[in-house]
Amino acid sequence: MNAIEIRNLTKAYPLFTVDDVSLDVRQGYITGLIGPNGVGKSTLIKMMLGIVRPDSGSVKILGCEMPKQEIAIKQRIGIVSDDCFYYEHLTIHDTKKLVAPFYDKWNDSKFKGYLDQFELSPKKKIGDLSKGMKIKLALAVALSHEAELLIMDEPTSGLDPVFRREMLDLLADMMQNERNSIIFSTHITTDLDRIADYITFINRGKIVFNEAKEDVLERYALIKGDMELLDSDIRKEFIGIRETAVGFEGLVDNRHKAAQLFGNHAVLETPSLEDIMYFTAKGGRVHA
């Protein structure tokens, strides 16, 4: 069962295109959508939510068609983004009075609890909130109407490390129910990656992979060694490579093959998601 099913989604802009993207976001798990800035992460999320209209393709959320069943879908999802959808001149309290009636399952005491926990004063005006506080407010709203699916666009941007950790607990709490799902996008790899089950890597408007994080980290390898090891054939094995006067560092997506190829002559390491992102984005540019 999938929480989100995207099929052949395309949106062309003058300078870049989200190109024929198909993606399944699994129910019961946390999916991290990673990629450099400006490769289509936010556009993809906005198309899921009906904020940007795709040129072609379809989106299904929790088994319902977007945008045909948009109202029913939005009852059941929570959206966290630093793009604030609320009126700047209203207080948090007034915003709640405005928003709560839209949700059938609004839980007022839960919302109050989150405001307390996040140290948000109901009297504060939306316009006076910092970026981090806006994220907290969006999270409080999202968690207060029993959303089954949380869609978060760059949720950690503007959050201090203390709250980022707290957020991990809140998200893990939500995931205690195996019918719930979370998808978040990020361009920096943070502690959030630690709790992500699946990683979807998007680069230049295309999906590079959508796999269990453990499989990704097992498949890729970071190789470091002396320049003498490199020739034109060996270079072809790399997705991206950084060569300097003191050696090279490169990424391959077949650890097994690389281990045979380099044996004990080079250092093989498990890359971080950031390494994978860096070399894929950079490597792509070199071969373009």
């Binding site: 798990y29 946390i30 995931m175 709790i195 089950d197």
Partner: peptide, 17 residues
């Protein structure tokens, strides 16, 4: 599986495995 994932702050797939 889900409680352990929360306590260790790791993914559900990790504890499941």
């Amino acid at each position: 599986i889900r409680q352990l994932a929360k306590d260790l702050q790791v993914s559900v797939i990790t504890t499941k495995r």
